[in-house]
């Protein structure tokens, strides 16, 4: 059986969970790209490339970092804002859109100002987002959203996970800390300064 690769969609109305297709989570110090385990630094470089080559690079901060419920969350918020600022300085189309909570909102969300895990595709479609990163979203909701995005959109997904990572993202990091997010900021800055931010879409 051909090895399953976690690639941008639209894959299907109900794409398989990557875990069920044999994709495993990285160990500490590792990440994965399209389901292949790689050293974390390689995943950093790839994420930086994807961000810099995107038309609408977007960060989706979730409740775990939007709310200042402990010191770590406050530090992560600072690091995420730094990442957004560097993306914005490179591409004025960069977006920072919150996922404040997970309730199914009625009558529906405003896709210009928020993303909801029950229909994340609405925000992706509305804003024409081609690369996004989830950070501070609880595991189950992130997995569900990443799967829906892969199923119904062509958006490239990155997960900056504080736990063990996400199989359903195209690039995943694990054990996210404020320092790790700042490391990604540095990777983006370094790549930007080197001018090596050519379009890498289509190389997946």
């Amino acid at each position: 059986m051909e090895k399953y690769r976690v690639l941008p969609g639209p894959e299907a109305f109900l794409p398989p969970a990557a875990a069920c297709a044999g994709v495993v989570l990285p160990d500490p110090g590792q990440g994965h790209i399209h389901g292949e385990i790689v050293p974390e630094d390689a995943a950093m470089e790839e994420a930086a490339k994807r961000f810099l080559s995107a038309k609408v690079p977007t960060i989706f901060p979730g409740p775990l970092v939007l709310w200042g419920w402990n010191e770590n969350a406050e530090q992560k918020a600072t690091a995420i804002k730094a990442l957004y600022d560097v993306l914005k300085s490179h591409n004025n189309g960069a977006l920072l859109i919150p996922m404040p909570d997970y309730r199914p909102k009625y009558p529906k969300i405003d896709p210009e100002i928020e993303i909801n895990p029950n229909h994340p595709n609405l925000t992706i479609w509305h804003n024409k987002i081609d690369v996004c990163m989830f950070v501070g979203v609880h595991c189950h909701q992130a997995n569900m959203s990443l799967k829906i995005i892969r199923g119904g959109t062509s958006c490239y997904t990155i997960a900056m996970c504080a736990q063990a990572g996400h199989e359903d993202a195209m690039i995943t990091f694990r054990d996210a800390t404020p320092e790790k997010i700042m490391k990604l900021v540095d990777a983006v800055k370094r790549l930007k300064d080197s001018g090596a931010s050519n379009d890498v879409r289509g190389t997946a």
Binding site: V65, A73, A77, K81, L96, P98
Partner: peptide, 17 residues
């Protein structure tokens, strides 16, 4: 005390929050 928005994200939070 835990119901506070991190200042970095205050402006982007929907108004109901």
């Amino acid at each position: 005390e835990k119901i506070k928005i991190n200042p970095e994200f205050y402006d982007i939070m929907p108004v109901e929050y």
